[in-house]
Design a protein around this nucleic acid. Structure first.
Length: 296
DNA sequence: TTCCAGGATTGAC
DNA sequence: GTCAATCATGGA
């Protein structure tokens, strides 16, 4: 077990980032966060101007962890690019240091198939059950930490055994998508070379259980498409309330609007809207027609 | 008990 | 092309 240190030239909100609904498999113990990057266990700790990495071969894997955490993203330029209005500037101020992650495409795909019409606590539990049932113990990792099962493994799992992990009706989607990926019917590398809208359409047509929103999550969180703009209920609400005068707009149109309006870093704008919208910080005192009525 | 969740699919129009 | 019903499940 070794250790390494990633030096930062800007703030990194480690806890907010690891629990921001992009990844679901990090576990916190005190001030440390343990998870799997590149198939191997790592433990992270914020160290004021740096992130400490520990675990097997940590010295040699620091670059890999850097890539995962995207610590080299040009945050000042990103904030300048997207923070052009008061609402976004406020969200940036409240969540400064929140980063996008660059995760492994298959785990991201499976995770967001599971996420459909669910919520973060339940997604977390379901993925945990999948890893407990089908994953392997991570080499030289803590006992409870398991790898995410590769496509070929989940392709062989029966939909019934997946449903037992809490997937509900999504079990057959995950089973089908696993087969598709395992058989090489889609290549994430090829998808990543397409422009964002074409890449999204390709994922949607190839993978069961992957619609526009899940596809944009895959593009944004694992394939380096920084202008992807996933629209879930929270983002839908936040965009309508803050930018469209409360007027509802179809999710596909909100996604196109977001990419157009915020430009090449639209995905970051989306993540700050999501984070701000789903927490009390951003919702409080905002007013608007969709705000819940409060008694007294 | 009802409503909601990082939605997708299917069928009707 | 858009729209509504339907799909499991647990938490608030």
């Amino acid at each position: 077990v070794g250790s390494a240190r990633i030096l930062l030239d800007h703030p990194y909100a480690l806890e907010a980032t690891l629990f921001s609904g992009q990844a679901f498999r990090w576990r916190q113990a005190g001030g440390t966060f343990t998870g799997i990057v590149g198939g191997a266990p790592v433990t992270l700790r914020a160290a004021g101007g740096a992130i400490d990495v520990s675990g097997p071969d940590a010295e040699r894997r620091a670059d890999e962890v850097e890539g995962y955490l995207r610590t080299s993203d040009p945050m000042a330029a990103i904030y300048r690019s997207i923070g052009t209005d008061e609402s976004m500037a406020g969200a940036i101020g409240r969540w400064r240091g929140l980063h996008l992650l660059r995760q492994e495409p298959w785990e991201t795909t499976a995770s967001f198939i599971v996420s459909s019409a669910s919520n973060i606590p339940r997604i977390t539990r379901t993925l945990d059950a999948i890893c407990a049932r089908f994953g392997k113990r991570a080499a030289r990792g803590p006992p409870g930490l398991r790898s995410f099962p590769p496509p070929a493994v989940l392709a062989k799992a029966t939909p019934g055994s997946l449903a037992a992990c809490g997937l509900g009706y999504r079990a057959r989607y995950l089973s089908s998508a696993a087969r598709c990926v395992a058989h090489g019917e889609i290549s994430f590398e090829d998808v990543a070379r397409l422009p964002t809208p074409a890449a999204r359409d390709r994922l949607v047509e190839a993978l069961d259980g992957v619609g526009p929103k899940v596809a944009e999550c895959i593009l944004l969180f694992s394939l380096g498409k920084d202008d992807a703009f996933p629209v879930d209920r929270w983002v839908q609400r936040a965009v309508a309330d803050r930018y469209l005068g409360g007027q509802p707009l179809a999710p596909a149109k909100v996604s196109a609007w977001g990419r157009e309006h915020f430009g090449r870093w639209a995905g970051y704008a989306q993540q700050y809207l999501f984070q701000d919208g789903r927490t009390k910080a951003g919702a409080a005192g905002r007013g608007g027609p969709r705000s819940p009525l409060r008694s007294q």
